[in-house]
Every structure is written in structure tokens, then in C-alpha cells.
Amino acid sequence: MLNKEELSEIIRALVPEVVVPEGTQLPEFIVPAENYFTLVEKLKSDPKLSFNYLISQTAVDFQTNMTVVCHLESTNFRYLVVVKVVLTDRENPAIDSLVALYPTAEYLEREIFDLFGIRFNNHPNLKRLFLEDNYGYPLRKDFRDEINIIER
């Protein structure tokens, strides 16, 4: 079982651009959008890591930027890591899709697109999942709905 530091070393060696913030609950790796797909692909295919299980994929709107957060687990070694991508463009955020690596990403990404408006490149079927076509992106912090959402 590798610890957090060893894991960081291995992953830094895979993609040198990753930033590893300190003091997080889980090992966390912030990666530029253009290296995102390569990193995850390597995480999955590296026999020492084999992160083959995408637990969850979501996004957070930090008002200054959009962050896509992936929780990956390796079912062989039981490592759990967080991969983050910071998207500074809030108007037209776009990122590579993980569908080619994890089939479950298809719907997780559709949900993110539905609720945050983040576009995924190379996604086979990027349509809204829950809401109507002209609803807006409700989980963005600047979303306002006078009728249905009560502000406190």
C-alpha cells in the first residue's frame, strides 16, 4: 500500500504539470485542462495504479472559476484520489470527456452539463439529463429562479 507521498511521486512522474495541494483529506491533484485526459488515461492504464473505477465526477462553481472534480478508485489496490481541473472561463467552460475511459462518465458528464453548463469534448451524446432545454444552469452560483428557489 503506497502512502500519499509515494502516490504523489508516481503521479508527478506521469504528468509533470500536476499541482498537489497540501492539507487535503484525500490525495488531490490539480491538473491543467489540456493534460486532464492524458493524466486520467495514464492513471487508468498504469499497472502500479490502475484507477479503473470512477466513483464520482462533479463540478463546483467557485465564482471565479469552475472546478471539475473526479474521484477515482483503484479496485485492485484500493487507492482513492481526487483529480481536479480548474476552468477559468465561466462563460464557455469546456473540458475533455472521459467516456472513452469510463462508460459511467457519459451520464455523470451529462449531469454536469445539465447543472453547470460545462461542455465536454468528444462526448457521444451531450444532452441535458434532468431539466428542460432553456432552464439555465441551476448549480451555478449566479443562477436566479424567483419562483422556485427561496433565498435565505
Binding site: 466513483i55 464520482s56 462533479t58 463546483v60 462553481d61 451520464y107 455523470l108
Partner: peptide, 25 residues
């Protein structure tokens, strides 16, 4: 597997709360 992911900004309500629900997958 139900996974809960919370981003807190120190306030009394979460900044972002994500539920990774088993049935979705």
C-alpha cells in the same frame, strides 16, 4: 455505494454538496 462530497466555505450551510448515488450508476 453512496458517496457524499462537501465543499464548505466555513458557513453554516455547505457551499456545494454532491451525492454520488448508487442508483444513478
Amino acid at each position: 455505494e453512496l458517496a457524499v462530497y462537501v465543499v464548505s466555505d466555513g458557513n453554516k450551510s455547505p457551499y456545494r454538496m454532491k451525492f454520488r448515488t448508487p442508483n444513478f450508476s
